[in-house]
Design a protein around this nucleic acid. Structure first.
Ligand SMILES: [Mn+2]
Ligand SMILES: [Mn+2]
Ligand SMILES: [Mn+2]
Ligand SMILES: [Mn+2]
Lengths: 228, 228
DNA sequence: TGCAAGGTTTAGGCATGCCTAAAACAGTTC
DNA sequence: GAACTGTTTTAGGCATGCCTAAACCTTGCA
C-alpha cells in the first residue's frame, strides 16, 4: 500500500498514464508501454514541466517507474489505483445515464470530477443498482470489482470492415460533446446495426436503420464494431 | 457575482458560518449574528490562525464582513453561496438515503465531500427524483431552489415538552454515527411519535411505540418535536 | 484601575500543484 | 561526428491552505 489517499491530481495522472498506454488499457495484464511527458501534458492540460514534477513524486511513491527522458509506466500498485479510478469513472457515467437520465454526451464531465470523491460504498451501491454492467454509455469496458479490465475481444474499427458487411457498434471512442450529439442524430450508438456500403476517400458510405449516408472519416474513426 | 468558482475550503467556511450563526440558519433572512474565530476553528478542525487567514480572503471577495477581534458574518452573496452548499449537502443526504439505501448515520460523511463536486444539473436531477423534499433524513430543512431556508415553525426541543404530552419527532440534531445508531435502535427518528412520561435529573422518561425508558439528557438534547 | 486569562492575529514555514524561461538531452540528418 | 530539432528537465516563482510560536487585544475580576 503506497499511501492512504492520493490527491485528485495524482489520480488523474495515473489514470491518464493507463489510458495512454495501449498495451495496459487494451489488454488486462502488465505494466504497459512507456508514456511520454508531452503526451501526458497534452491530455492533462498542463505544461510538460509540471508533468516532470509530478512523475518524480509518483515515482517516489512507487506508483510509477520513471526514467528521465525515457517515459513512465505504471507499477503494479499504480496500475491498481488507475483501474480503481477508471472503474469509478465508468460506473458513474453509466449511473448518471441510466439512473438520472443524463445524455451520453453529458456524463463525462460530471464523472471526471466525481470519480475522485465517491467512497467505495458509493461505488458498490451504484454497481449493484446497475447490475454490475460491463460497459459504460460509450461502450468502454468497465474494470471489474477485482480490478480486471476485460478485453475487447473481437471489436475492430469500422474503417476495417469491408464493403458489403454488416456490423454492430460496440463503442464510440470519444468524449467530445459535439461528436456525440452528431452520433445521436445519426443513430450511431452502441447496439446500432449498420451496413457498410462503400469506402470512399472522404469516409464510408453506410446504412443505419433506413438511412444511408456518407460518414466522414473523422467520425468513422471513432466507431468500433463487431461484425454481424 | 464574487467569483466563478470557490474552493472546497472556502465553501466549507461559508457553510459553517451559516450553521454557527443561529439567526441566519434558524430564520430565513438577514446576515445573522457574528461568529467567532475559535468557533469556526473547532467546527472545521483547523487552528484559529488558519481561520483568520481565510476570513481575510473571504472578506476581500465580499463574501463575509470581517471585523478583527469582533467576528464574521455573511454578506448577502456569501449567504447565497452558503445556502447553495447546504442545499447540495441535504439533498445529497436525502438521495443517498432514499435512492441508494444508505443509513441515515452514513449519509453525512459522503455528502460532506460530494456537496462541493456536483453540478447544478446533478442537484436538479436528484431534487426531481426525490420530488423536491423539504427535509433531509435527520429532519433538517433543505434550502429551496430559490435558496430560501424555510423556518422550523412550531418545532421545540423535547426537553421543553411537559410531562403528559405527546409529540412527534421532526428532527434529530446530530451527525454523530454512534448517537444516530442508538436512536435507530430506540426507534427515535423523524416521524416517530412519543409520549413524555416524566422529567428526571438524568433525562426524560418517555414511551415510544410499546417501549418506555429513560432517555438520557445527552440524547434528549438532540430531539426536536412538534406537539401532537 | 490594573492585570491575568483567553481568544485572536501576525510572522514565518511547509506541502501541493501549477506556471515560464532557460538549460540539457536524444535522435535524426548531413 | 557535428549540428539541428524537438522533447524533457531544471530553476525560480506564485497561489492555496494548512501549521506553530509569539505578539497582541479584550474582558472580566480584583
Ligand atoms: Mn478526474
Ligand atoms: Mn466513457
Ligand atoms: Mn464539505
Ligand atoms: Mn442532515
Amino acid at each position: 500500500m503506497p499511501k492512504t489517499v492520493l490527491s485528485e491530481a495524482q489520480e488523474d495522472y495515473l489514470k491518464q498514464i493507463l489510458l495512454l498506454s495501449p498495451s495496459a488499457s487494451e489488454t488486462p495484464e502488465g505494466p504497459g508501454d512507456p508514456v511520454s511527458t508531452q503526451g501526458l501534458a497534452e491530455r492533462l492540460g498542463v505544461r510538460p514541466a509540471s508533468v516532470t514534477g509530478m512523475l518524480k513524486k509518483l515515482s517516489e511513491l512507487r506508483l510509477v517507474e520513471y526514467e528521465p527522458y525515457r517515459g513512465v509506466r505504471l507499477t503494479e500498485s499504480g496500475h491498481k489505483v488507475a483501474l480503481e479510478v477508471l472503474r469509478h469513472h465508468r460506473l458513474l457515467e453509466t449511473y448518471l445515464h441510466q439512473a438520472l437520465g443524463y445524455g451520453w454526451e453529458q456524463v463525462h464531465a460530471e464523472a471526471e470530477r466525481l470519480e475522485h470523491h465517491i467512497s467505495e460504498a458509493f461505488e458498490q451501491k451504484i454497481a449493484e443498482w446497475l447490475g454490475h454492467p460491463e460497459r459504460d454509455p460509450h461502450g468502454d469496458l468497465i474494470p471489474t470489482v477485482e480490478l480486471a479490465l476485460p478485453k475487447n475481444a473481437q471489436a475492430k474499427k469500422l474503417l476495417a470492415v469491408v464493403a458489403g458487411k454488416t456490423a454492430t457498434i460496440v463503442r464510440v471512442a470519444t468524449q467530445d460533446t459535439g461528436s456525440l450529439n452528431l452520433c445521436t442524430r445519426l443513430k450511431l450508438k452502441p447496439g446500432s446495426v449498420l451496413a457498410v456500403l462503400e469506402h470512399q476517400l472522404e469516409g464510408v458510405r453506410i446504412q443505419v436503420h433506413q438511412d444511408h449516408f456518407l460518414l466522414p472519416s473523422s467520425l468513422a474513426e471513432l466507431l468500433w464494431v463487431v461484425e454481424a
